[in-house]
């Protein structure tokens, strides 16, 4: 990653375009996940890359560009939100995070695919927005606890706890279903 930011020294349009091509979709997906309209996210991406271009000198020491870009996007989106609605009563931490699931594989049948998709969405829907965001960043963006912590504005320790809680929560849901199933079997066998 470091290489890419260094390329900017040559004021190189090729490097800049590569960088944009590489991260535009990631930024779009994250912005939409945070609950913004596509057009708003597009504007924010534009602003982020514009800022990146004129601040490239300060990029020398950044070795995780993806994290840096996602954080810039989130901050920019929050700024946009602040100008459009009265945020006096909305805390910065309280953005929604929604997740939709897509399964690209064609090895399994439609039915199985749908079942898996429902399962994932059900599990994720029992989490809080922040837990969902953390799982998303971990699974889709392969980010470390430290990076997730930076995006959620909390300590790495608290982030670990957050993800741990998320797993526990999914586990509980699992247990409830599991016992329901057994009670169900129990009743059937009694008849």
């Amino acid at each position: 990653m470091k290489l890419f930011s260094q390329q900017f020294h040559a004021r190189d349009e090729f490097a800049y375009t590569c960088l944009y091509n590489q991260y535009a979709d990631t930024l779009l997906a994250y912005g939409i996940g945070l609950g913004f309209e596509k057009e708003t996210v597009k504007d924010a991406i534009h602003d982020v890359f514009l800022k990146l271009y004129f601040n490239r000198e300060s990029l020398k020491d950044i070795d995780n560009l993806k994290f840096y870009l996602l954080r810039m996007l989130k901050n920019r989106l929050l700024d946009i939100l602040k100008t459009t609605v009265d945020t006096s009563d909305i805390g910065i931490q309280e953005l929604n995070f929604s997740i939709t699931t897509t399964i690209l594989d064609e090895l399994i049948g439609d039915e199985e695919r749908l079942a898996l998709q429902n399962k994932i969405e059900k599990l994720l829907s029992c989490l809080t927005d922040r837990q969902r965001e953390a799982i998303y960043l971990r699974y889709m963006q392969e980010m470390s606890y430290d990076e997730i912590a930076g995006l959620l504005k909390m300590t790495p320790q608290a982030t670990r706890k957050l993800i741990f809680r998320a797993m526990e929560r999914m586990r509980e849901l699992d247990l409830v279903l599991f016992y329901f199933f057994y009670i169900f079997i129990f009743f059937i066998s009694k008849r």
Binding site: N21, G33, Y53, T100, I103
Partner: peptide, 21 residues
């Protein structure tokens, strides 16, 4: 192959944003 929030630009959109930029 499970993707969460699998949103992406169409090539035209991507190009348009870049041009704008």
């Amino acid at each position: 192959s499970v993707k969460l929030n699998n949103y992406f630009f169409t090539p035209e959109e991507k190009e348009a944003v870049l041009k704008n930029l």
